[in-house]
């Protein structure tokens, strides 16, 4: 059962307002970090939660877009919007190439292919002269928006990032609730049946993959401006694993789950930063508890609870 439309709208309105006041309540850079990861996880969820494809190489799109945007803004002096557009475009193209090859297989083989390509991107990032190797691409200028708004200050940048997030989230929300989204769900539910209804399953999967890669790229491109940095962390396979964690923790196949998961994981990493190398142990333990005790993720469990009590 779906909640009544007005309940849903009210819920979203509250969240939008919360996003508007967030930088006055928490440190703006933290909030921006959460938004970037929330967009990344939501894009990933389009593939895992709504198409049923587990990619284990989504760091490639996040990271590659970050490097390209960072380089365009730093070396060529591009304004931030163009830089982000180029980064997103590159991630889209990468998604098309890797996706075309990966969707020929399913299950674990699909995951392995996506992961191998992501490793390939990782090694390119280490080897290319323009990426800065181990140091990464540092001192990326944030620039000015339309030549008017100075993004080097945190508050205007926050609202810029927030706008990017809302745009990306709206695209995902619409995609899920579109004719295309319905076909995706049917593929997730029963691929052979969708095929026997005359849908060229591979082409639908590919479009979902490309959209997911593009929006992951948008998240990565934006993130590189926030931190003024594109580094190997973002293309490392740990990152591909982290986005799986965020999505499962928050609730895969739910609209808001990945964002909740991203908030939780980023907040934990921040709070626990003083514990150093214990952080992955703790997030790992949380992951185990999540998988054992509440498989539907936080949002999924809440939805089930609401459904049962009404």
């Amino acid at each position: 059962m779906k909640a009544a439309p007005w309940v849903e709208r009210l819920g979203y309105a509250i969240l939008v307002v919360a996003g508007l006041v967030a930088p006055f309540v928490v440190y703006p850079v933290f909030a921006m970090n959460v938004l970037c990861f929330a967009l990344f996880a939501s894009a990933f969820n389009l593939l895992l939660g709504y198409t049923g494809l587990l990619s284990f190489g989504h760091a490639a799109y996040l990271g590659a877009a970050g490097y390209v945007t960072g380089y365009a803004c730093k070396a060529w002096g591009w304004p931030p919007l163009f830089g982000i557009a180029l980064g997103t475009l590159v991630a889209t193209a990468l998604g098309y190439i890797i996706g075309s090859l990966a969707i020929r297989r399913s299950g674990i083989y699909f995951a392995m292919i996506t992961m191998s390509f992501a490793q390939l991107i990782f090694f390119l990032a280490v080897q290319f002269p323009w990426t800065g190797g181990e140091d990464g691409l540092q001192g990326v200028p944030r620039g000015t928006l339309f030549g008017l708004v100075d993004l080097s200050r945190n508050l205007p940048l926050y609202y810029f990032v927030y706008a990017v997030f809302l745009f990306g989230f709206a695209v995902i929300h619409r995609t899920i609730h579109s004719p295309f989204g319905h076909v995706l769900r049917s593929i997730r539910e029963n691929e052979a049946r969708a095929l026997s209804l005359g849908y060229d399953v591979a082409r639908y999967k590919l479009l979902a993959f490309v959209l997911s890669a593009a929006l992951s790229g948008l998240a990565g491109a934006t993130k590189s401006l926030v931190f003024q940095l594109a580094s190997l962390t973002d293309v490392h396979w740990h990152m591909s694993g982290q986005v799986v964690l965020m999505t499962l923790l928050g609730g895969m196949g739910t609209v808001l789950g990945p964002s909740v998961g991203a908030l939780l994981v980023v907040a934990l990493q921040n709070e626990l930063a003083s514990l150093g190398s214990w952080v992955p142990v703790i997030t790992g333990a949380i992951f185990v508890v999540c998988v054992l005790a509440f498989r539907r993720g936080i949002v999924g469990e809440v939805q089930a609870l609401v459904k049962r009590s009404f």
């Binding site: 579109s178 004719p179 319905h182 049917s186 049946r193 969708a194 209804l197 005359g198 849908y199 082409r203």
Partner: peptide, 27 residues
């Protein structure tokens, strides 16, 4: 072979949908 987590109506509708020619329209 049904689509388990879709409603009965949605199950049938997804089969009808292809003829609309909008099955790739994610917007």
């Amino acid at each position: 072979a049904v689509f388990p987590r879709m409603t009965v109506l949605e199950n049938v509708r997804v089969a009808l949908q292809r003829k609309l020619g909008t099955s790739f329209h994610f917007w």
